[in-house]
């Protein structure tokens, strides 16, 4: 639908981009007004920009550390959630055994576990990966379970009369059918993985690198411009991760309803 209320919605028409630009400019002005009247509340945007420009490699270094922790942790969370989801949907016995544990793990605040993990695994990358994996595990697990169970009964009847094996039903029906649910989870957990990495870095500051460490150290020195420069890096990384998931989803889920309205 390109015609809405008789107005052509092209990306280049002011009607498309003007509201966004106006909102961003207004937010920037409000920020500046607060920063000028209360210098301890917010840094000036110029100072944050200067930080990023003058110390680019410093921020890139630390951002890379945080990003790699987030992505490796996410990969661990994804693979383990996938394995557990397949196990509990294929076997009632395993479902009754595993699900209570998974739920307990989910309701426990991961932030509370982080310091204990630092005690156990030290200041290396291990606790960061574990925290990230834990925080991303449950949303993926729940969505995958729903997705694996979402096979239409009619399709299942067709496969049953063909005497398809459980493995064939899993590989040819359940797994492809669960992809839309997996992507819904990925949209949540890709940005969430950064939260996991930063939280873990907070609990072990002064050790190694990472934007969480940068924020923790700079805020104890009241260097607001540095804090907000690091936050800006995190926000940018989060946006890029989300963009990546959405683009991937468009490619992989060409066949799915969620993508149909996109093309004409």
């Amino acid at each position: 639908m390109s015609e809405v209320w008789g107005v052509t919605r092209s990306r280049w028409s002011p009607r498309f981009w003007l509201p966004t630009v106006v909102a961003v400019v207004l937010a920037g002005l409000l920020w500046e007004w607060v920063a000028i009247s209360n210098p301890y509340l917010l840094p000036r945007l110029g100072q944050v920009g200067l930080q990023l420009v003058t110390n680019t490699s410093y921020y890139l270094d630390n951002a890379w550390v945080t990003l790699s922790e987030a992505l490796i942790g996410l990969a661990i969370g994804l693979v383990s959630a996938f394995v557990v989801a397949v196990l509990v949907t294929e076997s009632g016995l395993l479902r009754r055994a595993i699900m209570p544990l998974a739920v307990i793990l989910n309701v426990t605040p991961v932030v509370a576990i982080a310091p204990a993990l630092v005690v156990a695994f030290g200041f290396g990358p291990a606790p960061k990966l574990i925290v990230t994996a834990l925080i991303t595990f449950f949303p993926i697990l729940m969505n995958l379970i729903t997705g694996l169970n979402s096979v239409s009964p009619s399709v299942l009847q067709v496969f049953t009369t063909l005497h398809a094996s459980r493995l064939e039903i899993l590989g040819r029906l359940r797994l492809p059918g669960s992809l839309p649910y997996l992507f819904a989870a990925l949209r949540v957990v890709f940005p969430l993985s950064l939260v996991g990495a930063v939280v873990a870095e907070f609990t072990a500051p002064g050790a190694g690198k990472g934007l969480g460490t940068v924020i923790s150290v700079a805020s104890s020195n009241s260097r607001l411009a540095v804090v907000y420069a690091a936050i800006a890096c995190l926000a940018a990384m989060g946006s890029l991760l989300l963009l990546f998931v959405i683009l991937l989803e468009r490619r992989v889920l060409r066949w799915h309803e969620s993508q149909l309205s996109r093309r004409n």
Partner: peptide
């Protein structure tokens, strides 16, 4: 009979796999 694919079943809905 279904183990040797002698039976073809066609339900009310087309029941096609949307990704194929």
């Amino acid at each position: 009979a279904s183990a040797v694919k002698m039976i073809g079943f066609m339900p009310q809905v087309p029941a096609l796999l949307p990704w194929l």
